[in-house]
């Protein structure tokens, strides 16, 4: 398992992460981000993509 952290002071609810890694990130009906803080290693590629496409670089991968 791996862990991520989204800096909520940066996150601007763009929703790009939810396109790149729908298993980990989703936008609720209020347009706000919900995400799984831990995820399976098999999803690492997806999550790396999500990190890349976040326009404000709010997503951090932890060791």
């Amino acid at each position: 398992m791996k862990t991520i952290d989204v800096d909520r002071t940066l996150c601007d609810n763009h929703g790009q992460c939810a396109i790149a890694a729908p298993d980990v990130f989703r936008m609720n009906a209020d347009g706000e981000l919900e995400y799984e803080a831990t995820f399976d290693d098999a999803l690492l590629d997806e999550v790396e993509e999500a990190i890349d496409v976040c326009p404000v670089q709010a997503i951090f991968l932890k060791d």
């Binding site: 929703g15 939810a18 396109i19 936008m27 009906a29 347009g31």
Partner: peptide
Amino acid sequence: ALPADRQLHYR
């Protein structure tokens, strides 16, 4: 001015 989930729907 719509929440991101609407944008995802249209996408």
